[in-house]
């Protein structure tokens, strides 16, 4: 089941608490700066395929800037 993580880069303060709790370790600090001058975190498109949608990162984030989406099978569907 592919999952997706969205970061609100304008809110990220680059504390990196999310990088440590991610069980797959796919969150990294990028080289981009946001408007406030913090280096934001990112997940590369290839690494995103490993995301399990556990939302540990969102639970840890003190600035509420992570949104996690996951896909779910509709009722009755086989695939």
């Amino acid at each position: 089941m592919p999952s997706r993580v969205e970061f609100r880069e304008d809110r990220c303060k680059g504390c990196l608490l999310c990088t440590e709790v991610c069980p797959t370790g796919i969150i990294q600090q990028s080289s981009r700066f946001n408007q406030k001058g913090y280096k934001v975190v990112e997940i590369t498109p290839e690494a995103m395929k490993e995301c399990k949608g556990c939302a540990f990162c969102a639970m840890m984030c003190p600035d509420f800037c992570i949104n996690v989406f996951t896909t779910k099978q509709a009722k009755g569907g086989k695939k």
Binding site: F64, N67, F69, T70, A74, K79
Partner: peptide, 10 residues
């Protein structure tokens, strides 16, 4: 058929 749901609900 699959649908995307949001895990985080602030």
């Amino acid at each position: 058929m699959t649908q995307e749901i949001r895990v985080t609900n602030y």
